[in-house]
Design a binder for these strands. Structure first.
Length: 224
DNA sequence: GCGTGATCATAA
DNA sequence: TTATGATCACGC
């Protein structure tokens, strides 16, 4: 089955709302895909499934999933209280000072300009096939959120430009953090500093902290 | 190896 | 229990 990209925002939201409440098995049936027995060796499976079902067209390009609409799709695992289980990967950390100059042209801002969050039950005691898709949340950073994101981004990028990437810790940044993003800890990529010197380092990615994404999607149930 | 989709596993 | 650091799968 091949789902065409939604023609506009309304269409996308309508499609996403139509999935609210159904299980991953039901959605997989709709697009003729087999549900893996667990996420252990299929970590991005649910995210890919939603991309296919909603007609995302950016594939693995470093752009928002719905190119024409400028909207990024993110699934987010939540526990039984509606709380975010995990941090959220945003994009690769570029390691050339030329690409780290300006927040307004950054990959992070492009990806987070507008995000359609789709919560999915993520408790490990629920079989993958029975996990339900939640109510989508269309989000755009407000003035204060963007200010903090920009500040985190600037602080981290400044360090990279200064050639201090190896001093960056995941504990840095209020909303944004930088963590490894690679096949394994031995993977290497090139990092250029402000003087044009190049050295090999572990590839990393930008992530949103779970505490921040939690504030975006809100809590379905504060009891328990 | 790069960049997408993320979650796993264990130290603290 | 939680967050950091590590890892899995895929297309190209």
């Amino acid at each position: 089955m091949n789902v065409s990209p939604p023609v506009n925002l309304q269409e996308l939201v309508r499609r996403a709302n139509a999935l609210s409440g159904i299980t991953l098995q039901q959605l997989a049936n709709q697009v003729n895909i087999t549900v893996p027995s667990s996420t252990h060796s299929a970590k991005g499976w649910a995210g890919n499934l939603l991309e296919i079902a909603l007609g995302a067209d950016a594939k693995n390009a470093p752009e928002p999933d719905f190119r024409k609409l400028g909207i990024e799709l993110k699934t987010i695992p939540i526990d039984k209280n509606g709380k975010a289980n995990e941090s959220t990967y945003i994009c690769i950390v570029q390691l050339d000072p030329g690409e780290l100059k300006d927040w307004d042209t950054s990959l992070v801002k492009a990806k987070l300009n507008k995000v359609l969050w789709i919560p999915i039950e993520g408790d490990k005691d629920i079989p993958l096939s029975l996990r339900r898709i939640g109510t989508p949340v269309l989000w755009k950073p407000d003035v204060n959120e963007e200010k903090q994101l920009r500040q985190d981004w600037q602080e981290l990028c400044d360090m990279i430009v200064m050639g201090e990437i190896d001093k960056i810790s995941s504990s840095m940044g209020k909303y944004l953090q930088i963590r490894p993003k690679a096949a394994n800890a031995k993977a290497l990529t090139k990092n250029k500093n402000q003087y044009g010197e190049t050295k090999a380092t572990l590839p990393r990615g930008f992530y949103l902290r779970a505490t921040f994404t939690q504030s975006i999607i809100g809590s379905l149930n504060d009891n328990d």
